[in-house]
Simulated assay, not measured.
Amino acid sequence: MSDGGETGARVLDEAGGLRAMTGIMGIMLFLLMLAAALGLGTLGAARTLDRQLAGRLTVQVVDGDPATRDAAAARVAGVLRGLPGVARVAPVDRAALQRLVEPWLGAEAEAGALPIPALIDVDLTGEEAGDAVAAAVARAVPTARVDRHAAWMSPVSRFMTLLTGLAAALVGVLGAATLAVVVLAVRSGLDVHRGTIEVMHMLGSTDVQVARLFQRRIALDALIGGGLGGLLALVVIWLLGRQLGALGSELLGGVNLGRADWAVLLLLPLLFVGLATFAARRAVLGHLERSL
């Protein structure tokens, strides 16, 4: 039985088809980790965006007369500061606002020739206070408008949620494809070495012992290929994270991975090897029970 096991192990180690699995496993894990990183990054960014926008709104006070507009804005700001559930009231600096719109409206905006609304940024302690704020603003200045940040950024949030779902689906597809590749490789190896396996059985080897030889080979391929592919994926993910951070965008900066996300990515190669090994064992035992 020992000689049969050693012979089977040498034959499997020399099998070119199974050695090709090393590269296949590396590619599969590389793609899987990139998809997982995309999903984790967009999920974190979507949560951060929802948390930041849930309690934020902007009040616009529009009036052609600057004095009337400024008086109305001051009245609104005073009302808001006295409301429960309002954490911060910050009128937007007029000079900064004029500089912001000057590239689109021209020098007339900077000179004050065009009626630019007065803006007031408001931070709430909870999203539920938004209705009370809107009602208070309407009573103080009926022409003022309340814009909720969560409302006009909701398409971005939905898009990021969609990306997260697509990434999760891609991870599932790549996992299923990995299982299929392992099963096909094992069946091919069993067909190629059918005669050797029959000799091993005659020498006393059991189906479980034969399965161990195949799962050891698959596990080694997954460990070597997955290790290389996983390392390359981590380097690519880290470089992409640095590039996103260098853009200086709050939205894109939220796509960066946190410590928990990196921990998940580091666990993926181990799960990958375990999944491939388990699939190889089940494929061998199932095939041997049916055919030998």
Rank of each mutant, 00 (worst) to 15 (best):
L234A: 14
A20C: 03
T68Y: 11
E14C: 07
R148E: 03
V141L: 09
L38H: 12
A37E: 00
F159V: 06
A107D: 00
V11A: 12
L266H: 12
G204K: 13
T277S: 11
G112Y: 07
E289A: 14
G130A: 15
A283N: 09
D221G: 14
L232N: 07
R94L: 10
A185H: 10
G286V: 00
A74L: 08
G8I: 00
G64V: 04
A169Q: 07
T196D: 03
A283W: 04
D13E: 03
A132P: 06
A95K: 15
L100V: 04
V76R: 05
H201W: 07
A140G: 13
G225Q: 05
L228C: 06
L43N: 14
E250C: 12
A45T: 00
G245K: 12
A111S: 14
V62N: 06
L247W: 08
V89Q: 06
H287L: 05
L124K: 12
W262K: 10
G286Y: 07
L57R: 09
G8S: 12
R217Q: 04
H201E: 03
W104L: 05
L252K: 13
R282C: 14
L288M: 07
T178Q: 07
L223I: 05
G248H: 13
V173S: 11
F214W: 02
G23T: 01
F30N: 06
A45H: 09
I224A: 12
L247Q: 08
P115W: 12
V181R: 12
L252A: 14
Q209L: 09
V11Q: 12
G44E: 02
D50V: 03
G258P: 01
V199T: 05
A222Q: 05
P269I: 01
T277Y: 08
D13N: 14
D63P: 03
I24S: 13
V89D: 02
S2C: 07
V199D: 02
E127N: 09
S291V: 06
V186A: 11
V86Y: 09
A87Y: 12
G241H: 08
A67W: 06
V182R: 13
A211M: 04
E110F: 09
Q209A: 13
A151F: 15
A46D: 02
W238K: 15
V89F: 09
G254T: 01
P91Q: 06
S157P: 08
R158S: 11
L223V: 01
A150P: 06
G227Q: 03
G126N: 09
G23P: 03
G17T: 01
R69D: 02
V255E: 00
T277W: 07
L31G: 13
G253L: 05
G130E: 04
P115L: 10
G126L: 05
G85P: 01
L257A: 13
E128Y: 08
H287T: 04
L12M: 06
V255H: 03
P117C: 08
L12K: 07
